[in-house]
Design a protein around this nucleic acid. Structure first.
Length: 474
RNA sequence: GCCCCCUUCGUCUAGUGGUCUAGGACGCCGCCCUCUCACGGCGGAAACAGGGGUUCGAGUCCCCUAGGGGGCGCCA
């Protein structure tokens, strides 16, 4: 490890929301920096004014916060640094390392078209590279291109990809400044990373080719090239690039699906990186264990089933009172959560808190939890779900009438006492417990599944329970 | 088309030349537990893409093929 403090950055473009690939990139940057006593910076790559929106910036920040990731310093706007970018271009121009290109967009399009037709790579042919400025056409504002080396090769020693080599003849003269005077991304990243003191660039491997081109800019400026780590992309379940259809959702979508940030983090960190056979790990362990060199080189598919399982593990591991608070705090983001919240009064809140142990055992996410807690906040008479209705045939309703008496006579209304008397009743009448429990469950919850029935009775309390049973008994 | 990258169970992965008759996790199947659904416990099926080398020995190193991915913008 080097002695210089590590500085990483997360540099999303605000054209959409923070999606899952970006979230993982942010996490990796954060873990690497913070795990090594360094800093992670946040920079918004908003040089494309057409596509950048404030909403997207806000969504990215919300997403990071939800994931529990923070950054050092303020949020840097790349666009606001445009003057500095232009300054660098002036230097390059003055040193003859860049030049003005007057080729029109149409001209460039034709060039590409022709190259493709002839089976050549579609690249800029350098037609203005060595032309005399006096040949410049009237009234055309030029773009500024970098004079990249024509011979030799460019090497990137990548922490993930290893040594990657390009022939310089395959790389053309990239644009630094658009004809409208605005810097391109390619220029801006290099200048910003340099100025911000970034020591390690960790980003998706869709930037791998860019790394070579950016190296040319670093070299032209005589700046040291930062360490790089190009991490493999995340694919959808079908192995294809993540699309809106399957997983390229914003992190806020995962929040709405009821996933916990710590589960999300844990799932994400294991996508493309591992520490032996360790599956579940705390933030401290991640910080302690995470390292660039242990990142795999191949793309990983996003697997909801595993996320779901992991989330369930985290839910069950969360203390009841804490999960209760988390659940309430997230209600606004869950489908139907507001309605649920509106139905919560003091009594029902208490019941919810009391039911938490039984509820969380059965929920893999907060949406499940909401669904299974529904019976706690519903008004009498309960709306019966179809499966519950099926349980409540004539004999079941008859049973309910009988068991109501047994429950009424139970002196202490707690799970253990209730279980004792119902089991006693079952034995005395030679019934299976299930033939009593299921009708009770249907009457008490309106559904065919629920936490243990004696817990349900206890949570609901004597009055409410007996009333619900009475509603369904014949 | 050109350039670059990748390839161990269905999925995420362990594995850095011999201890691999390839390990773990999710999912799947079966059994147990059981008032439902879950949880949990136990067990099972399941992979080194193919072909050549190198080596006493290859999942591990090299080459080729196939397949997959990324890039080739006055987008980022």
């Amino acid at each position: 490890m080097s002695l210089a403090p590590i500085v990483t950055r997360f540099a999303p473009s605000p054209t959409g929301f923070l999606h899952i690939g970006g979230a993982r990139t942010a996490l990796f940057n954060w873990l690497y920096a913070r795990g090594h006593g360094g800093k992670m910076l946040l920079r918004i790559e908003d040089t494309d004014r057409e596509r950048s929106t404030d909403d997207a910036v806000a969504a990215i920040i919300d997403g990071l916060k939800w994931l529990g990731l923070d950054w050092d310093g303020g949020v840097v706007s790349q666009y606001e640094r445009a003057d500095r970018h232009r300054e660098v271009v002036d230097t390059l121009l003055a040193e003859g390392k860049a030049y003005r290109c007057y080729a029109s967009p149409q001209e460039l399009a034709e060039m590409r078209e022709k190259a493709r037709a002839e089976g050549r790579p579609p690249r800029y042919d350098g037609r203005w590279r060595d032309r005399d400025p006096s040949e410049a056409p009237e009234g055309v504002r030029p773009a500024i291109r970098l004079k990249t080396p024509v011979d030799g090769e460019t090497v990137v020693e990548d922490h993930v990809q290893g040594r990657v080599v390009w022939q310089n003849k395959d790389l053309d003269d990239l644009i630094l400044l658009r004809s409208d005077g605005n810097p391109t991304y390619m220029l801006a990243v290099v200048v910003d990373d340099h100025d911000m003191g970034v020591t390690h660039i960790v980003r998706g491997d869709d930037h791998l080719t860019n790394a070579a081109r950016q190296t040319h800019i670093y070299q032209a400026m005589g700046w040291p090239v930062p360490e790089m780590a190009h991490i493999p992309l995340i694919h959808g379940p079908d192995g294809a690039k993540l699309s809106k259809r399957h997983g390229a959702l914003g992190v806020e979508a995962y929040r709405a699906m009821g996933y916990l940030p710590q589960a999300m983090r844990n799932y994400l960190v294991r996508l493309g990186w591992s520490h032996g056979d360790d599956e579940m790990m705390s933030m401290e362990q991640m910080l302690d264990w995470f390292d660039l060199d242990a990142i795999g080189k191949s793309a990983a598919r996003f697997d909801f089933a595993k996320l779901e399982n992991l989330n369930g593990l985290y839910m069950r591991q969360t203390p009841d009172d804490e999960l209760y608070s988390v659940f309430l705090a997230n209600l606004a983001y869950l489908p139907g959560g507001r309605e649920f919240e509106a139905r919560l009064d003091d009594i029902r809140s208490r019941r919810l808190a009391q039911a938490m142990p039984g509820l969380k055992e059965r929920a893999k996410n907060l949406v499940d939890l909401l669904e299974s807690a529904q019976f706690l906040v519903e008004d009498r008479p309960l709306q019966m779900q179809e499966k519950a209705l099926k349980i409540l045939d004539d004999s079941a309703r008859q049973t309910l009438a009988e068991v109501a008496g047994v429950l009424t006579d139970t002196p202490d209304w707690d799970a253990a006492s209730l279980e004792a008397s119902v089991k006693g009743f079952a034995e005395a009448t030679e019934r299976k417990l299930g033939s009593i429990a299921q009708p009770l469950r249907a009457a008490l919850t309106g559904r065919a599944t629920s936490p243990g029935i004696f817990d349900v009775l206890a949570v609901l309390g004597r009055e409410e329970s007996l009333a619900r049973i009475e509603d369904q008994a014949s």
